[in-house]
């Protein structure tokens, strides 16, 4: 593992010089940029970045502006990961041939993509990057919906959420399929590092980003990104909603090393009922009607079962 930026506490972290800029066009209160800031500020190394089509990409590269103070590329919806993988391969080849102009600089390769671009449309491309073993990190900004095109469901959209292609109404409670377990799928490639992160737990996030950036080979990060527009909550509440997500264990924080060593990295002191997380967002409003209340109970049971499973995996190291 290579040497990493020292970040003892938040005061020290706040001396970072951001390489992501304001006057981008993300919604007020959008968690995408909070996540991007925490990822980029976790290192002082040079960065080779990409973003797949989605809110982050369209809002930070609005002609004639860029909001990125680092090498950054966008190609399509599906291939942000492979763009970075290509750059990483070139870097390795030039290094082997001794043709790097500044061999002392050790750039980090990071691709950002939404859940639509990662769980669905760029799925095989990311899988290819993980399998081929590029030294790169893929970060999912997981807002559980195709936000940029108006809130269509993705395979990350959870049961009971109202999305524009799975709307709640008189005949339906919204999305009927369960969220895909992307962290496990990616870890199953046997990659050195996979983790789930959340921007409210900035220290855990920085630790995991630094771990991922310091290994040889691919790392995969799934970051919960509360979306004020599609989840339907007030922009000021982005961090409060995120706290509810981690403290209700709807979004547990853990890491998987080398595909098998699972560590839970955050155990809430007071576990919040899932109901509170659901009640805080308009996308789940209909679940509180009498005929759908059984779904809230099922939600809690699913979350409890997942938490029990994570704990068993942590113990068993499998």
């Amino acid at each position: 593992m290579s040497e990493m930026k020292k970040i003892k506490n938040l005061k020290e972290f706040s001396t970072s010089a951001d390489r992501f800029e304001g006057a981008n066009l993300l919604c007020p209160g959008c968690a995408h940029s909070i996540i991007v800031r925490e990822v980029l500020n976790a290192t002082n190394d040079d960065l080779i970045l990409s973003a797949s089509t989605g809110c982050l990409e369209v809002c930070t590269a609005v002609y004639p502006y860029t909001s990125w103070d680092a090498s950054w590329i966008h190609i399509g919806f599906e291939n942000g990961s492979t763009a970075v993988a290509g750059a990483e391969s070139m870097y390795k080849a030039l290094k082997t041939k001794g043709r790097l102009k500044q061999p002392d600089r050790k750039p980090k390769f990071v691709s950002f993509a939404g859940d639509g671009a990662s769980y669905d449309i760029g799925f095989q491309w990311i899988s290819g990057c993980m399998e081929r073993g590029h030294t790169m990190m893929h970060v999912v900004l997981d807002n559980e919906v195709y936000a940029n095109t108006g809130g269509q469901r993705s395979s990350s959209t959870p049961i009971g959420s109202s999305a524009t292609t799975s709307p709640a109404g008189r005949k339906s409670y919204g999305e009927k399929k369960n969220k895909k377990d992307m962290v496990s799928i990616m870890a199953s490639h046997g990659i050195p590092y996979a983790a789930q992160v959340s921007p409210n737990k900035w220290k855990d996030m920085v630790k995991k980003i630094q771990h991922g950036l310091s290994v040889e080979g691919p790392s995969f990060i799934n970051a919960i990104s509360a979306c004020t527009t599609e989840w339907k909550f007030d922009p000021k509440d982005t961090m409060a909603i995120t706290d509810l997500a981690t403290d209700s264990l709807v979004f547990p924080l853990y890491e998987i090393i080398d595909g098998h060593e699972l560590n839970i990295t955050y155990r809430p002191k007071n576990i919040v009922p899932v109901e509170e997380y659901l009640a805080a967002q308009g996308r789940f409003k209909h679940l509180f009607k009498d005929e759908y209340k059984y779904l809230i109970k099922e939600w809690q049971e699913r979350v409890d079962a997942k938490w029990a499973q994570l704990q068993r995996r942590e113990e068993a190291r499998v």
């Binding site: 020290e12 706040s14 304001g22 922009p235 982005t238 961090m239």
Partner: peptide, 26 residues
């Protein structure tokens, strides 16, 4: 840490003000 818009200006571990060109008022 939680401002999405890089609009809290902190220098030398002190919070010194808000960047009113980039704050979106969230």
């Amino acid at each position: 840490i939680y401002c999405p818009d890089i609009s809290i200006i902190s220098r030398d571990k002190k919070m010194i003000g808000v960047d009113m060109d980039h704050c979106k008022g969230c």
